[in-house]
Design a protein around this nucleic acid. Sequence first.
DNA 1: GCGTGGATTGGGAACGTTCCCAGTATAGAC
DNA 2: GTCTATACTGGGAACGTTCCCAATCCACGC
Lengths: 340, 340
Amino acid sequence: MNRRPTIIDVARQAGVSKSTVSRVIRGDGASVREATRRRVEEAIAALGYEHNAVASSLRTERTNTIMLAIPDIANPFWPDVARGVQDVMDEQGIAVVFANSDWEGRREKAFLRMASRNRFDGVLINPIATDNDELRALSLPIVLIGSREDFPDFDTVGSDSYGAACQALDYLASLGHRRIGLIRGRGKSRPGYSRLRGYLDYGHESGLPLDESYVVQVNFDFEGGGQGLRHLLSPSAPLPQPPTAILAANDILALGALQAAHELDVDVPGALSIVGMDDIFAAVTTTPPLTTMAKPKYEIGRKAAGMLLERMEGGGQERPQRHILPCTLRKRGSTGPAAL
Amino acid sequence: MNRRPTIIDVARQAGVSKSTVSRVIRGDGASVREATRRRVEEAIAALGYEHNAVASSLRTERTNTIMLAIPDIANPFWPDVARGVQDVMDEQGIAVVFANSDWEGRREKAFLRMASRNRFDGVLINPIATDNDELRALSLPIVLIGSREDFPDFDTVGSDSYGAACQALDYLASLGHRRIGLIRGRGKSRPGYSRLRGYLDYGHESGLPLDESYVVQVNFDFEGGGQGLRHLLSPSAPLPQPPTAILAANDILALGALQAAHELDVDVPGALSIVGMDDIFAAVTTTPPLTTMAKPKYEIGRKAAGMLLERMEGGGQERPQRHILPCTLRKRGSTGPAAL
DNA sequence: GCGTGGATTGGGAACGTTCCCAGTATAGAC
DNA sequence: GTCTATACTGGGAACGTTCCCAATCCACGC
């Protein structure tokens, strides 16, 4: 007896048919006489009617909801991306929900199955355990976040890590550094080859002695950054001379390196310069604050959302597009002229 | 012609009725002969049938999805809470989606309306623009995250900020500090009176000179923390003597204070001790690393999820419960004995 | 061989909306 | 006043599932 009112109840109350109520609710251009519309709206208010989105979705095959699937909500990279996505989708009246797989492939797959079971109109994803063919099998509008060459059938939106590495090295070179180390992350399925390629290529072009002996690969976390630094500065390392500057593959590694430098009493930036990548919040709180290559996180979100909308509307027969947005250098305190 | 197969197609293919297919799919205890079940499963595989969750929800009035509504996904507090929530809900086969209002009341309300339009079975929320009565009007299972006395009709799960403030002060007192400043946040609708109450009460009980003159209120961000510190240490402040230790209402304020101390050449912890609250990632990356009161974020998530499940299952006529979990002190480098 | 009862199965009626098409007002032209 | 085009409205049939109840099957005991 106390069940929720439906459009039929509203129709009865307003003395019209359910079709007319539906027209009023949908609010698309459907023509309803002004007086009728008002009567329906009064009936809605009087009954406290709430639109049943599930029933609507069943008929229209649209949920007006998209999924943003990310591997790690704790990574400060994603909130800004999410903001960009939301700002675009909001204008279209589309809700964005987050699916956080927490680096568990099982969860990612569960979320994707949920998406294909009709709950979502589209998916933005940075995949960790799903490959090109599996995504294609979902036959859903999908746009990838991240520069992933291994997904030839999908639009991708990423940032130019390769160019960022070169730009960072160029800045360090301009400060007089010649021996520059690279701390790479190993792990979690994110290769990050682009940074290494940028590093090696820049070495070739510039004539600086950038080679594998200045590259160290560590776990992709704070402690890893410290280990990387210790290794590069250690007297036992097979390095002719230790580096005077270090580029880290992301800020977390860079912050670990910075803290290790403090512990070793190495002056930053006096004796050693450090550059990170991403520009997370913590980069600004350290002493000295971290110089880093900022990724255009918000723009990545906006761009990806825009492309997904296109896929959702246009039948989506166009060829996959790849967008790579440039990074920008944020000069802070952790870099300085090379020691003589 | 290329539309997605339904259970009717599966039924035809397997030579059974749609009811039987439905029984197989639901996988609850419904009795189906083993041979029949196998035939149905083969038909499902052959046709590539995918369960239509929207249609199912329409009939069952369950979506097996809950919403976790938070104000600020960029706040490192939430990821850990989310992990706790997900770990509990996963076991029940319930998906968790995030609704990030980005401190916009408009968005929060939009998400809640979406929830009440039948898309979600329950809501976990830390509300910013919705009050007790508005939440009740949704007539949905809801559990609040955060110790909110202003929501008498709902279960809440929060942490003991009051006790945490006392505990931090006790630790500082044990190090010999007598003049202890408090940097409070102003803003965003989160009063944080509990910390102030803890501060004043502790002053009363311990006999330390903790009073309003040592309390400063600033914007709830990194810069605010710096301003607070400058104010407390400034010679023009109306303080008899500057504090030798500072308690900040959260880590972001504490980190701002720490950086300001560096800029003023105040030695931490030699001349000044600083304690934060929350234990975010950045707290461990500074020099010195920040001593802070860690909130039981993961446990808050688990507990809140568990309570929501109870509400969703039991008709939910029990009285609202309030759970307050204790915080723990993380001793790091930013605290030391009081200078003489 | 027959009756009994539990295990299986089938068929139709929801669930609440939107779509489609036909029907009815209404206004303007003559 | 009649005719016609257009604006508006109504009614039934989907959408794909689950629920409910009735029908059938089968094994068992007699």
